[in-house]
Design a protein around this nucleic acid. Structure first.
Lengths: 237, 237
DNA sequence: CGGTCAGTTGAGTAGTTTCAACTGCGGTGG
DNA sequence: CCACCGCAGTTGAAACTACTCAACTGACCG
């Protein structure tokens, strides 16, 4: 009962998989869930470590990272509020999941979740839809990394982050108004995400600032001033 | 009956989704299927055109392409024998699917397939597994495009194609032996896939030839002579 | 056997990286 | 509350990789 009550006030309830399944399945899922807080910087799982649970991100941002022998990293995915964390049906992974901000996670033990999936096919359906969406966004990033200049990449990243943050507030980014965001990624993270160096990130942000498209306050607060112009840059027009 | 007989001799039966579901579901799927041949170069679906069917690739290679306003293209996915073609649950797409070789497809009308999925949950399960695998390979390509030199990309592509072709023959690529392949992609396709120009592709292939790692016969036949060395290059060691 | 276009080769250039020095934000301790 | 310190982030100069543009070659077709 109080378990369900917790769901009633959950910030991501409507957007996560638990909001896309019938009441019975949601109740069973809720019963099996437990909350967990994780500090920024902590590794959640890696090639070497399986925590034994999956999770829905309730608050914060997680990066999925591939690391090369020589220490170079590439972020291959970002998880925001309402996203699902973990690799179903396969204990092996070559990714590392790391908290880029402090996190609040709604966790389910692997075994329980997988048997719930067998019992409630609606859950599997919701996950399939979500995975297909993830695949679509993955392909958007492939496009971004393959054929775009540093400037286009940085502009795209800013818009991408803004959109995800706005979605979390149930807002939509209007065409012309400003948007202030608290960047959840460090310069190094941005570089690892866009396949650039931190120096290039710094220079491109500076360029956007000179052009009046963005303004910054401190290290992490960025205001997107000219959304339409940014979008034009991102699309490389 | 003769429909099932067709499946008995199907080249991809064991590796496609139809090989991962119970007999009853497979029989229903088989009943609903029809074969289709498509010549190289033909567009199968695009932002503007929905053929109204999904398919399993029985023979050939399909490229999934994103095109930019200025005409630049990026291949964001390749489908080989046994892969599933089509976007479930969503009629809208910003991709174009195009035959890079002559194709043989086992097709299912959209409506029939989606109702079969509701009836046979095992089908949905098989698709979820496959989609998760696709997501994994997508992320491998993100890694490739983000942080690697032209040489590493070309070496990776050759190994990737070799592996997919070998899998189609139920072979595994040995550590040191040679492997001859018939490249299903033109230089332009390779460039669009790796986010490089055709000139760079050409120069890198030439370099690999000089280094004795590959040999070529005509435009499309490539022999990988030093698999171990190629793998080292691809990994950037 | 000749034409055509995919693919190759060359020279110069643009954009990003590398390496190195510097700046200032934000946390800590006096 | 302010001064100091460490490190994230910035800036500059040089080097390098891949791109652009242009000319050329030769594989494959009729």
């Amino acid at each position: 009962m109080n378990v369900r009550a917790r769901c009633e006030t959950c910030a991501v309830r409507l957007r996560a998989i638990c909001g896309a399944i019938p009441e019975a399945a949601a109740a069973a899922l809720s019963q099996a869930s437990h909350m967990r807080r994780i500090p920024a910087g902590q590794t959640i799982y890696s090639e070497l470590y399986d925590p034994g649970w999956f999770a829905i991100v309730v608050f914060g941002v997680i990066k999925l990272v591939k690391t090369r022998g020589d220490g170079r990293q590439q972020i291959v995915g970002l998880l925001f509020e309402s996203d699902f964390l973990g690799r179903l049906f396969d204990r092996h992974t070559d990714l590392t999941a790391e908290a880029t901000t402090n996190l609040e996670l709604c966790c389910f033990s692997r075994g329980v979740f997988e048997s719930l999936m067998q019992e409630h096919k609606s859950l599997e359906h919701a996950l399939l839809r979500r995975t297909l969406d993830n695949l679509d966004s993955s392909r958007d990033w492939i496009f971004l990394l393959g054929r775009r200049t540093a400037q286009e990449r940085v502009a795209s990243l800013l818009l991408f982050i803004a959109e995800r943050i706005a979605r979390g507030r149930n807002e939509v980014i209007a065409g012309t108004s400003e948007f202030e965001l608290n960047m959840p990624l460090s310069r190094a993270d941005m570089a690892d995400f866009l396949g650039l160096t931190i120096e290039t990130i710094s220079r491109e942000l500076h360029g956007l600032k000179l052009a009046g498209l963005i303004a910054t306050k401190g290290r992490r607060r960025i205001t997107l001033c000219e959304l339409a112009a940014l979008r034009r840059l991102a699309d490389g027009v």
